[in-house]
Simulated scan of single mutants.
Amino acid sequence: MKRILAASAFALGLGLIGMTASQAMPLAPVADQAASADVILVAGGCGPGWHRGPYGGCRPMYNCPPGWHSGPFGRRCFRNW
């Protein structure tokens, strides 16, 4: 009985030591979330005024007026029916 208790205490001690020493995901400060000046925000890597198409290529963004929608390649506006 003493042997099982000693083995359990030893295993528990190793587990606690390993848990305190690991830092797989350190906590980040919540209050300081200012954007860095080194980061440039772009639309999917295509740049401003462009977006990713259905096959991953960059396409220009066309804004059609209300009641219209863009065509299959986004180059023309068609009336909604």
Rank of each mutant, 00 (worst) to 15 (best):
C46D: 11
G57C: 03
I17T: 09
R76K: 15
Y55W: 09
L12C: 08
Q23N: 12
G71R: 01
G44Q: 02
L12W: 03
A6M: 11
C64V: 05
P26F: 01
R79M: 13
A34K: 13
V42Y: 06
P66W: 01
D38K: 03
G18S: 04
L5Q: 08
C77Q: 02
A28L: 14
L16V: 12
W68A: 08
P65V: 03
Y62V: 15
A6F: 12
A6C: 07
G74S: 03
W81E: 14
C46E: 07
P66L: 06
A34F: 10
N80K: 12
A35N: 05
P66H: 04
L16E: 09
M25P: 00
D38C: 04
G74K: 05
G57W: 05
A21H: 07
P66I: 08
P54D: 02
S70W: 09
T20C: 00
S8I: 12
T20A: 11
G47W: 10
G45H: 09
D38H: 07
G45M: 07
A9I: 08
G49N: 03
D38L: 13
F78H: 13
M61W: 11
N63F: 15
N63I: 15
V39L: 10
G47M: 05
A43F: 04
P66T: 07
R3S: 12
S36M: 00
R75H: 14
I4S: 11
F10D: 01
V42S: 14
P29A: 09
G67E: 08
L12D: 00
G67H: 03
A7D: 01
